[in-house]
Amino acid sequence: MATVRIIITLKPGILDAAGQAVRQGLHALGYEQAGEVRVGRYVEITVPDGLPPEGIHQMCERFLANPLIEQWRFEGLDASSMAASRPRARRPRPEGRPSGRNTDQRGLH
């Protein structure tokens, strides 16, 4: 079994109200050096060895993240590098989510 660690954050350019609040708090405590703060979710999932990254991407796209507003990256599948969400081909969503969800999906840089 492998443990996949997934980090989900709001896409750049989307107002991160929680991040702003945390930044204000850090400043209030005197940590003026704190610049931009992004708050996200962290999800750990154990999966069978050999699961292709596509499997994790699907979990993120269909449920763990909302691709309209969120991006994700994960590590732990091959222990080498963090895979990132990336521009993806449009495909019909099994649950009937609008295909428009994927239109401005961007990868991490």
Binding site: L10, I14, A17, N66, R93, G96, R97, P98, G100
Partner: peptide
């Protein structure tokens, strides 16, 4: 929205 029956998404209130 999450079920895809309506378009768009919800973010936290800007007033936090």
């Amino acid at each position: 929205l999450e079920a895809g029956l309506l378009p768009g998404a919800m973010l936290r209130n800007h007033v936090q």
